[in-house]
Simulated assay, not measured.
Amino acid sequence: MKTTIKRILGLSLVTAGILSLATPAFAETGAVTTDGKASFVPQSGDINTIKPGTDEKIDIVDGNNERVTVENIQLMHVPDFDFGSNETSVDTKNYDAIYEHYQKTGDTTKYAIPHFVQVGDVSGVQGTAWAVTVEQEALFKETGGHALKASRVNLYNQTLTNNVQTGNVTDVVTGLTIPSDGAVQVPVKGVDTTGSIAVLTSKAGKTDQTTTNGTISSVVFQKDYDESNYGKVDSPALTDKNTDVKLNVPQSDGVQAKAYGAKLNWTLTVGP
């Protein structure tokens, strides 16, 4: 509290009196300290899916919307792989997957986007270790039972993103180990000996610059993915395909003119 002291000196009736003010040589202060408090618990419920490389909230349409939460780490999105309708062939063929489709929140316009996996960390803990793996449940089969014994889904390229650690995403998460001249094959359970493969893994960093805590991480199955190429008038068409996700069908599989399907299991593991 600031105090100002005023003193009035005597007023002389004999001479021309002078009224003067006197102040202290320095200001006087006082202070009171109060507390600021805040506590936090892990977020409950679904985390909004975002367009990888941005904070823009989106809704996936025409595809998978299942999610799972383990120890306050949420697997927010995994992709369907639709390889479309194709002609039979006597040759070995690679078929590209149709882009995923999404809408901007509050909008009904559909846009194409490359296939991606997304994880949100609301654990409130630095250094949480987590990983997302994938394995095909069984061979591609048609309703009559014919199986494509050697056909496999192949992932050729990837781009990692994090909505907070934008400049050092590789210090936060890792993706697939993809050969420079090849692809990573999604293994089939009980058929391939490699077992499931890790597509997105935290580095369990314990600093503000390396933790996934409070952030959303994604792996986009496309080389040099640039979010600005999607969600606008001249974006790829909904029927366009992602050349970095292919179904390889060897000629030896003798594909029939029927519809084939398979399930892929995406697993989120949290902890050592």
Results as ranks from 00 to 15, higher is better:
Glu71Cys: 01
Ala22Trp: 07
Thr49His: 01
Gly63Trp: 03
Tyr111Pro: 03
Leu19Ser: 10
Tyr156Ala: 07
Gly231Trp: 09
Gly261Thr: 15
Pro236Gly: 08
Thr15Asn: 15
Ser218His: 12
Asp55Arg: 04
Thr3Glu: 13
Val173Lys: 02
Ala16Arg: 09
Val191Asp: 12
Val125Ser: 09
Gly17His: 00
Asp244Gln: 15
Leu9Cys: 10
Gly45Thr: 09
Gln256Cys: 04
Ser44Thr: 10
Thr174Gln: 09
Tyr102Met: 08
Ala27Met: 03
Asp244Trp: 15
Gln118Gly: 04
Gly17Trp: 00
His77Ile: 11
His115Ala: 05
Asp96Ile: 04
Ala257Leu: 15
Gln222Asp: 08
Val191His: 12
Thr211Ser: 15
Val220Arg: 07
Val220Thr: 08
Gly175Ser: 06
Val172Gln: 06
Tyr99Leu: 01
Ala38Gly: 02
Thr207Asp: 14
Thr212His: 09
Asn248Ala: 12
Asp91Thr: 09
Val125Pro: 01
Gly205Gln: 07
Val219Arg: 04
Lys258Phe: 03
Leu238Ser: 08
Val14Met: 02
Leu247Gly: 01
Asp96Met: 09
Leu19Ala: 11
Asn72Ala: 10
Glu227Asp: 02
Thr133Asn: 03
Leu176Asn: 05
Gly271Tyr: 14
Gly124Met: 05
Gln222Arg: 14
Phe40Pro: 00
Thr161Lys: 12
Gln256Tyr: 12
Ala259Phe: 02
Tyr95Asp: 00
Ser44Val: 08
Asn213Phe: 13
Phe116Val: 04
Thr210Trp: 06
Ala97Gly: 02
Val41Leu: 10
Gly53Lys: 06
Glu227Pro: 01
Ala129Trp: 01
Ser85Thr: 14
Gln251Arg: 14
Thr211Glu: 11
Val184Asp: 13
Thr215Pro: 00
Thr193Val: 11
Val117Tyr: 02
Gln165His: 10
Asn64Thr: 05
Gly63Met: 03
Pro24Ala: 13
Ala112Thr: 07
Phe140Cys: 00
Val191Lys: 15
Ala129Pro: 01
Asp55Ser: 08
Tyr111Gly: 03
Thr212Val: 10
Val169Lys: 03
Phe83Asp: 04
Thr207Cys: 13
Asp171Arg: 12
Asp181Ile: 12
Val68Met: 04
Gly182Met: 10
Trp130Gly: 01
Glu66Arg: 08
Ala257Pro: 14
Leu155Phe: 06
Lys57His: 03
Val270Trp: 05
Tyr102Arg: 09
Asp55Lys: 08
Ala183Phe: 12
Asn64Glu: 07
Val219Pro: 02
Pro24Val: 07
Lys203Phe: 13
Glu71Gln: 06
Ser44Phe: 02
Ser151Asp: 01
Thr267Tyr: 01
Asp35Cys: 05
Asp208Gln: 08
Ala31Val: 07
Ile18Tyr: 00
Pro42Cys: 09
Leu75Trp: 06
Gln185Trp: 03
Ala138Ile: 00
Thr109Arg: 05
Ile50Ala: 01
Tyr225Val: 04
Val61Phe: 01
Gln103Leu: 05
Ala183His: 11
Ser39Cys: 13
Pro79Trp: 05
Thr88Val: 13
Asn154Phe: 05
Gly45Ser: 10
Thr92Gly: 11
Asn162Arg: 02
Ser228Lys: 13
Thr215Lys: 08
Val199Cys: 04
Asp96Glu: 13
